[in-house]
Design a protein around this nucleic acid. Structure first.
Length: 883
DNA sequence: GTAGGGTTAG
């Protein structure tokens, strides 16, 4: 009898060798064309060999491979005799098809039939236990294994390691691993993979070292896992592992290439990632997806889009991951148009209901569309929204300012039976910035405690952030103290919130707390501390932070570099600020803003404005903050027309809608320039409702230009909005006094005291030898500085009598606290060191002149900072008429 | 003749 398979013709005429021949034929069919299986099967039946167990097992395998599990099962049921191979073959067919429940049913039936399982059976059964989360069942299998003496079988050991890892029992898996004497490369790789899954990156690498020492050579599988660890451990480690791949002479298959590309892009070395991807011509959908995602993460958006196009040209079909990645590009670039184009391709590909793609679409519409309804529509189309879908949508509502809606969606999510995770809770809490949402915050806090999410550091950090933001510092610290461990984010958010709340002097102690807690200072925390230092004007600490950032290499982070520009600018060391700026390779908007702010606040108005021109030439787009700085520079430089011009250019040239702050500056510019009517017109026509601040601004201008009627109007309007602000009374009273209407001045003061309004006591502080000294107006004099204080008073008297400054009323407005700080500083600073005084209230023109006068006499630089504004006084640079 | 490990997103 002849049997034809492909081009081969085999003679089946020797019955004695028939079994062997059929077996060979079948394995040939297994690895080749499935149709030929049939042409082999029929002669076997014709020859009456259908109850040959050996042949049937072969056929069973063939059916499973070629026709699927159902045909195989049918064949199995028809088999007259079954042995362990037949059972295991069927069982494994179900496992391969992912039908684990039926696989375990087959295993039960097998035991009932009295058939004893072997190591092959148990291996398949273990896989099903892992997949189904059947811990008890798996444990029984392990017990059986031990009983049958399979406990050293490397295949079963790998299966058990996988099984324990799936249940997060990595330590148990490692114990088992150590118990076994000899491992093959699969069980080594399995254990490495288990450590990687448990994020024990260093242990994973250590195991690789052990593996080599044990004389087991690694393969591509091993390295794929090791590279995943390197993605976290960093580029240095990644390159080392890459070198090992070369040393072992492993072939660069597409999977290994993908893992390398992924590692390099996660280590922010896209150049290496591209180089690796070009090493071999082999590409597939997954590699393209890894490239697109890597390019997107490294902000190379154009290239990501090019790769996506290239992929389509090469006819690789994008899958759900690919669409997620490319949608991420449009989210990150805020390009709605690209997002919509991809959305239509998603629809064509029939993937719009897919949860991962749906999530990416929700995220895209949240980021790119002004209408949160777009995101909601996509969300409602996802067939089975998971926790990520809900979290994206909830965060989206919060980002768009619909805080209460986001909270209601959170409730809807719970009602839908989807369990929130730490991201959901932290995302929603992170958006709560108003005290009115305290009840919701407390509810979420309670929910986190009940669900144990409270133990998650991300949630703890979010709670700390929201409490610190709401000024509830005790509550924030309470969480810090009860945490089992803290990270850089914990301290950074505490520091920045306390800084925003004005508790500058407390912030720097957090640096020490962090050091004592053994937490590494990262770029974010460093930027935060630099900003605190800048706001405090504490040069000594600032310089130490600078040293630390140089030594630790943090200085190459743009946020840190920008912090340094800001620090030196705010501390009045403009040349250092310029040097720090010069060291930034590609300055961004923040860098330029820092430079402009430093120049402007130190009186270099024209340099500040030319820096703004340079910024435009460098192609960096100004943002609303840039314009605040530029307008403020014009205000200080009394450049009224230029200021108006810049204000108008915001909308016309840069498409930036002026905010309330910008209008306040415009009113100030016009007011200080004496164009009070125009300023008033701006207030009346601007698209915002006037607030107390803008009335106060114009009132101050009225005082300078002695316009009583408008000033009275401003004070009236301002007090309607904020009746508790004493500034309106003080400014008005001083204006009356200036105009010689002392009667009205006195009356205004009286009304103010009847309303029990008092100026908050002025505070000033100086930093000398790394210590901040605080002085409050009205406090008792320290004996040591009593003498110098008296000297200052006599200087003041002299100043008052100075012919150019007569009638300035210095004694009334030059605050006690500042004088104390100055006296203290004069006593304690070396002769050439500048004195830095920080005030918590504004510094008036008279104080200005007095400090200038003192500078002239003592030949020392004095820097006075009020809020964010800084005044530097140097001998000879004084423009007052007295010098 | 029957058994084990790998890549991509949010």
């Amino acid at each position: 009898m002849l049997c034809k398979t492909g081009s081969r013709i085999i003679k089946l005429n020797e019955v004695t060798r028939l079994e062997e021949t059929c077996s060979r034929l079948l394995s040939f069919c297994n690895s080749n064309v499935l149709k030929e299986g049939i042409s082999v099967h029929s002669p076997i039946i014709k020859l009456g060999l259908h109850d040959n167990l050996f042949l049937n097992n072969n056929l069973l395998s063939l059916y499973a491979k070629c026709f699927g599990v159902h045909k195989a099962r049918h064949f199995f049921d028809e088999m007259p005799y079954k042995d362990v191979v037949s059972w295991t073959g069927t069982l494994s067919a179900y496992v391969k098809a992912g039908n684990h429940n039926t696989a375990l049913q087959i295993f039960d039936s097998m035991l009932v039939s009295g058939q004893c399982p072997n190591e092959f059976t148990l291996s398949s059964v273990l896989r099903s236990c892992s997949a189904l989360g059947e811990f008890q069942y798996g444990a029984c299998v392990q017990a059986y294994m031990i009983k049958q003496g399979f406990d050293q079988n490397p295949v079963l050991v790998s299966g058990l390691i996988d099984f324990y890892s799936k249940f997060d029992y990595t330590d148990e898996a490692y114990k088992l691993f150590n118990y076994v004497e000899n491992h093959d490369k699969v069980s080594w790789t399995m254990m490495i993979s288990s450590f990687v899954q448990d994020q024990r990156w260093n242990q994973a690498l250590q195991l690789y070292v052990d593996m080599i020492e044990a004389g087991v050579p690694p393969n591509q599988f091993t390295f794929v896992k090791l590279l995943a660890a390197c993605s976290v451990l960093g580029l240095h480690c990644g390159k080392l592992v890459h070198a090992h791949i070369l040393l072992w002479g492993l072939k660069l298959n597409v999977v290994l290439k993908t893992a390398l590309v992924d590692m390099y892009s996660r280590c922010q070395s896209m150049e290496d990632a591209v180089k690796v991807s070009n090493l071999t011509p082999e590409y597939d959908t997954l590699l393209y997806t890894a490239m697109i995602s890597g390019l997107a993460h490294n902000f190379m958006f154009e290239k990501a889009i090019v790769a996506f196009r290239e992929m389509r040209i090469s006819e690789f079909v994008p899958n759900n991951f690919t669409f997620s990645s490319i949608l991420n590009v449009s989210s990150l670039t805020f390009s709605l148009e690209l997002g919509q184009q991809i959305h239509s391709r998603v629809v064509v590909a029939g993937l719009e209901n897919d949860v991962s793609v749906g999530n990416a679409l929700v995220n895209m519409y949240v980021k790119c569309s002004d209408n949160i309804g777009d995101a909601l529509r996509v969300f409602r189309g996802i067939s089975l929204p998971n926790v990520i879908s809900w979290t994206s949508l909830i965060a989206g509502f919060a980002e768009h300012g619909f805080l209460l809606d986001s909270f209601h969606l959170f409730m809807e999510m719970r009602a839908a039976g989807v369990q929130p995770n730490s991201f959901t809770i932290s995302g929603i809490i992170g958006s709560f910035n108003a005290a009115e949402l305290l009840p919701q915050t407390l509810m979420l806090h309670g929910h986190a405690i009940k669900t144990n999410l409270y133990k998650d550091i991300v949630v703890q950090n979010a709670l700390i952030d929201v409490y610190a933001r709401l000024g509830m510092l005790d509550d924030a610290w309470q969480i810090v103290h009860m945490m089992s461990h803290r990270d850089a984010i914990t301290y950074t958010s505490l520091a920045s919130r306390m800084n925003q709340g004005g508790h500058h002097e407390l912030v720097l102690s957090i640096f020490t707390d962090m050091y004592n807690d053994d937490i590494k200072i990262d770029a974010f925390s460093m930027a935060g501390f630099l900003s605190t230092s800048a706001d405090l004007g504490t040069m000594v600490t600032g310089k130490q932070l600078h040293c630390h950032s140089v030594k630790s290499g943090l200085g190459k982070w743009i946020s840190v570099a920008n912090g340094l520009v800001d620090l030196y600018g705010k501390c009045g060391c403009i040349s250092d600020a310029q040097r720090a700026f010069g060291e930034i390779t590609v300055p961004d908007t923040f860098s330029w803003n820092g430079l402009i702010s430093g120049l402007a606040s130190n009186g270099y108005i024209s340099s500040a404005l030319s820096a703004f021109d340079d910024m435009k030439l460098a192609g960096v787009k100004p943002d609303p903050v840039t314009f605040l700085l530029v307008l403020s520079a014009c205000n200080n430089g009394k450049l009224v027309d230029l200021g108006i011009e810049y204000f108008q250019s915001m909308r016309e040239t840069y498409d930036i809608e002026p905010q309330m702050d910008h209008y306040v500056h415009l009113v100030d510019i016009l007011g200080q320039g004496g164009r009070l009517e125009e300023a008033m017109e701006v207030i009346q026509t601007m698209p915002f409702r006037a607030d107390a601040l803008i009335y106060k601004t114009l009132l101050r201008a009225c005082k300078a230009h002695r316009n009583i009627p408008l000033a009275e109007d401003m004070a009236k309007r301002g007090l309607q909005l904020d009746p508790s602000d004493p500034a309106f009374y003080i400014l008005l009273a001083n204006l009356y006094d200036d105009c010689g209407r002392h009667d009205l001045g006195e009356k205004t003061h009286k009304v103010m005291s009847e309303k029990r309004l008092r100026k908050s006591p002025s505070q000033s502080w100086v930093e000398i030898r790394n210590k901040v000294h605080l002085f409050v107006a009205g406090e008792r004099l320290h004996p040591q500085i009593n003498e110098i204080y008296k000297k200052l008073e006599s200087l003041e008297a002299e100043f008052k009598n100075h012919r150019y400054h007569q009638g300035m009323g210095v004694g009334d407005s030059y605050y006690h606290s500042e004088k104390l700080a100055l006296a203290f500083a004069l006593l304690n600073t070396p002769s050439k060191t500048p004195i830095r005084i920080v005030k918590n209230s504004s510094i008036c023109k008279d104080c200005h002149n007095f400090v200038k006068f003192v500078t002239h006499l003592i030949d020392k630089e004095i820097i006075v900072r009020e809020g964010k504004r800084l005044h530097s006084f140097r001998k000879g640079e004084c423009s007052c008429t007295g010098c």
